[in-house]
Every structure is written in C-alpha cells, then in structure tokens.
Amino acid sequence: MMQYGLLVMGAPYSSPAPHSALRFAHAVLDRGHQVAGVFFYHDGVHNASSLMAPPQDELNLHDAWIELHQQHAIPLDVCIAAALRRGLMSESEAQRHGKQAFNIASPFELTGLGQLLELQQRSARFITFA
C-alpha cells in the first residue's frame, strides 16, 4: 500500500483536470492504496467554491470532493494566495478582508505552499493534474 498525493491545477468545467484527478483518486483507493491529500492550486482552487451550482444532471465537483473526504478522510487543502486573488475565501478571511460573503468552508482548508511541500514529502507518489 502506498500513499498518493494529488495536485489539482485546473478549474472545474473549463478543464478536465479535476474530473481526471477525482477518477484517479477513486481508482487509487480501489487498488488498496491511500490518498494522503489533495492540494488545489492555481485555477484548481475553484473546486473549493461552495457556490458552484452546475445543472442537476452534471457532476457537482465540489460535492464530489467533499464525498471523497467524508468517505476516506482525505485532506482537501487549498492554496490561500491562489484562492484569495480569485475571490475565493473562508468566513474568517472574508472578515479579515472586509468582504460580505465567503465561499470556502470545511472540509476544504485554506493553507500555504508549506502544506504542498509537506504533502509531497508524505506521499510515495505525487501526481499532478493540470
């Protein structure tokens, strides 16, 4: 059994990267491995938006990531710098920046690049989806 780390850099519905990463994560788990964490970076931070509302007959990637977390306790880390400059923030960051709304909530966690490096170090395999 190996630990896999995943880096997602594509935005949902404009890039196939998040869907590929999600399918890959499920396949990793099906093979008996573990996913040590998923790190969302660059446009991949949009996966964490709780305001995502695709048509009902399409996969809701935000919800699919949460389901993956709930079933397997996989950390979902979001680069805070990439998120803030794209208008994605948690409640505490919204308060800090004087914004009226927020769109990132648990289990997605705003973190720094240190978490990305830590995930790479914890993972026997680190796969990028961009």
């Binding site: 850099m9 990028t128 989806f129």
Partner: peptide, 11 residues
C-alpha cells in the same frame, strides 16, 4: 504509477 516512482505531467 506503482511501477514508476517519479512522474511528470505535461500540460
């Protein structure tokens, strides 16, 4: 990915 310890994604 089990066989190859290192991977590179080209995008």
């Amino acid at each position: 990915t089990e066989k190859y310890e290192k991977s590179v994604t080209w995008y």
